[in-house]
Design a protein around this nucleic acid. Sequence first.
RNA 1: GACCCCAUCGUCUAGUCAGGUCAGGACACCGGGUUUUCAUCCCGGCAACACGGGUUCGAAUCCCGUUGGGGUCACCA
Length: 487
Amino acid sequence: MTAPRLRFAPSPSGYLHIGGARTALFCWLFARRHGGQFILRVEDTDRARSTAESIQAILDGLRWLGLDWDEGPEVGGPHAPYFQSQRGPVYQRYVDQLIKTGHLYRCYCSAELLREKREAAQREGRKPAYDRTCRELSPQQWPAGEPYVLRLKAPLDGETTVSDLIRGDVVFQNKELSDQVVVRSNGDPLYNFVVVVDDMTMGITHVVRGDDHLNNTPKQIQIYQALGVKPPSFAHAPLILGADKKRLSKRHGATNVMQYDDEGYLPDAMINFLARLGWSHGDQEVFRRDELIELFSLDAVGRSPGVWNPEKLLWLNGQYITSLSDERLAEMIAPRISAAGFQDAAADAVMAKRIATLKERARTLAELVDQGAFYWRAAEAIEYEAKAKRKFFKPDCLPRLKAAHAALNQLQNWNDQELEACLAEVLAKLDVKMGKLAQPIRVAITGTSISPGLYETLAALGKVKSLQRLTMAIEHIEAEPREEAGS
RNA sequence: GACCCCAUCGUCUAGUCAGGUCAGGACACCGGGUUUUCAUCCCGGCAACACGGGUUCGAAUCCCGUUGGGGUCACCA
């Protein structure tokens, strides 16, 4: 295959949506797989809805996902500008061509009249297509000074076939297609025309987009034909649905990819998950980015719409978190720790050790920071969970905690092995089971009955903080009124 | 309503194009094991070819129909 050129062409009327992200991913993967180019083009001709913030949000989303574009906003390229709003002269050139070749005609029907006709057709069960009233108007019949739109003089019969790389041939009867408006009465060209001109002039070879565009494709092919140009290859990927099988929207949860960043998802996990939603490679679930590039094929993209499954994304994200190095994770969560207002700035080695105890338990970076709160908190800022306190801070554990404190205080090498040996000795001396000692200590140092393994946690917390919290716990229990006496 | 697309466990899917293994994997769920809690991990379980006709010795796979779901029908993109 000669180097393909693919484009992602979002309209900037919001953030980067999950569905858009997957479309962009498929385009990007295909381009990277075949050594082609990935082009970003902004479809901002709807000035009422397009905003600069949206453009930025979409760029941010793509960058977060690591979908780099070879041409487009902020990087430029040989086919600039990459904003439709700035390509007026290009469109005008091709409008002129189509007028000259007789493919466009003036239609003086008012928007109001068309709306009425459409509604009447709907009511009477006819198809709501334009009735071609003005198609054969001669210039003598043009009402002077009246506004008009330019319509495509489309074929009246025959058929238009979309050769889709995912779905095969999709045939549309031309009589089902009406004479689409190409230029508004104010002179602005419409979407189906500008998208064709852009794809054509930018040398796009493969148009990969959502299923919702399949019905636009024959209209675009008719424009290519009028222009006398061979259309690119098309591939329409199935849409992403919510749990109720309705088109994915905000009420199904987060649809903004950057919200997943906020919630502590990793871009690689998101990429992996998005790729697997609609595309597959045998039984494989986890793919590195380079594997995805190597294996991606439009042949393996399914045809049926898929349901967004946040549970599986969570699982995948956990897999990625576990697989990252402690050091890398430390970098990633540092901003989150300070944003949460925690003070403890531990040395890198200590930080890595702490993360090692947490990462296989956390499915998101947010969970990781949350579950490690007892690490980042100052020693004296410990908060005991009510239930854990009630269950494990009983007066009878005081001797055990005191014995543990005394023994640990003597420990020279504060590491997993030494800690285990040290506590084993305490256990033997007191003749109690591990559970009787581990849980009170756990609550003392973490504030809860749930935490990573005790030795590694003590080791990662550090001797000073650990002993301080043990002391605090002992004092706390001693200060507590003895409930047994009353009841 | 018309047109277009789609149809395997609850979900993502393999298998469909070149009909022939108890329909495979993953998430979730349930049970068991490991264990100082939780999680990880390991083992096991539950669970699907939408329905009806054909074609065929044989159909998840090919054909037709039905049903269901989705999408699109703008002087939006």
